[in-house]
Design a binder for these strands. Sequence first.
DNA 1: CATTAACATTGATGATTGTCAATTTGAACT
DNA 2: AGTTCAAATTGACAATCATCAATGTTAATG
Lengths: 131, 131
Amino acid sequence: MERHELKNVKTVTPVGENDEACCVPTLVEPALGAKQARKAADIFNALADPTRLTILSLIARSERGEACVCDLTASFNMGQPSISHHLKILKDADLIQGDKRGKWVYYSLVTGRDEEIKGLLDTVLKIPVEV
Amino acid sequence: MERHELKNVKTVTPVGENDEACCVPTLVEPALGAKQARKAADIFNALADPTRLTILSLIARSERGEACVCDLTASFNMGQPSISHHLKILKDADLIQGDKRGKWVYYSLVTGRDEEIKGLLDTVLKIPVEV
DNA sequence: CATTAACATTGATGATTGTCAATTTGAACT
DNA sequence: AGTTCAAATTGACAATCATCAATGTTAATG
C-alpha cells in the first residue's frame, strides 16, 4: 500500500485496477478518547466568551482573589441575571467556586486549580491583538 | 463608604438614611480590554469542540506533525464537509495551517505556536475524567 | 413578621453552531 | 479535453447559546 506522501516514488505495489491507496493513516493511535475530549471541550467552552474571560480576569487579579457578584455586575453593561448565568457556567466547569457570606456571594478560582486557570488565561492573553 | 467585606466591623460612617454602600469594587483595574477578551474568546471557542480537539491531538501526535484531510476524515464518524468545516475554524483561529501538495492538503500546527497550542491541550487534558 | 436587598432561576427570543446533502473547485492522469 | 478524486463551499435544519424581563429564594433588618 503506497503512502501518498511518497507518491512520487514509484512503489513496487502490483498496481491493480485501482491502486491509489488513498490515505493510510500515519497514526491510528488512541488519539484522545471521546469522554476526555468532551470534558476538555466543556472547559474550553466555558472560557469561550469575552464576558466570562473578563470575570475570571477580574477575580484572578483582585486583591483577595475573590469578587462578589455585585462588584462583577457593576463591571458590565448587562443585567444581573446574565452575570449570574455566566457565573453558573464557570462554576459548572469547575473553574470558580462561590462562597455566600451574609447577603453577598463571593466567587474565587477553584482551590487548587488557581495556577492552571491563570496559566490558560495568560497563554491566550499573551497573543498580540492585531493592529 | 463601608466595604461589605468589612461589614462586621462597625465603621464610623455617619450612617445616613441609606448607608449600606453596596459594592465598592476592590479593583477598578483595566481588567482586560474588550478587544483582547474577544480575541481570546475566539481562540477558546475554536478549542471548544470535541472533534476539533481530537483533530488537533491527531495532528500534534502524528509522526511528521501533520495530517491530511483524508486521514482525518477517516478518523471520525462524520462527513467530509464537517471535517472541512472544523478545519476552517481552527485555521481561522490561527491554530493550524494547510499545505496543499498534489491532490491532498496537509494540516499542521501553525509554525511558531506549536508549544503554545500543545500546552493548552496538555493543561486541559491533564484533568482527570470523572469516574 | 414584613420588608428589603443580593443573587438565582425561569421562560422567551434572536443569534450562532454542528451536521448533512448537494454542488463546486482544483489538481492529476488518461 | 475529459475524467477522477480530494477538499472546500453552499444551503438547510435542529440544537445550543447569550441576553432580557419577570419571578423566586434567602439572608439581614426594622
